[in-house]
Amino acid sequence: MVPLWLYLAVAAALFSIGMFGVLTRRNAIAILMSIELMLNAVNINLVAFWRYQENPANLSGQVFAIFVFVVAAAEAAVGLALIISIYRNRQSVIAEDVDVMKW
């Protein structure tokens, strides 16, 4: 089998890619997509650890991944709704432009 650490390495890479996107993309929708990448990286970890434990009959890892799906779906729905309503008000989806919450 492929050793566990390879999966972990892929997940780490995907997470870092997502982090880069979140930190640097200007478009809010692109940020949202980057967040999805990060969540997927987490899921890869969860499933990999589940698979490589002594007793895979314990399904906690998979169940957790399912809950991550749920949260991701909810987050996408609310996030997109927020972006659209911000777009309506400000005619912009650039995250930097939304900076009224400061001193």
């Binding site: 870092s16 880069f20 930190l23 640097t24 200007r26 478009n27 929708i29 777009y87």
Partner: peptide
């Protein structure tokens, strides 16, 4: 909203560096 003139923020080098360090 699909084609922004500049897709990255001004802080992108820092972000990239941090992501690499984190990786």
């Amino acid at each position: 909203i699909t084609n922004l003139p500049n897709p990255f923020t001004a802080q992108w080098p820092v972000g990239a560096a941090l992501a690499v360090i984190f990786f």
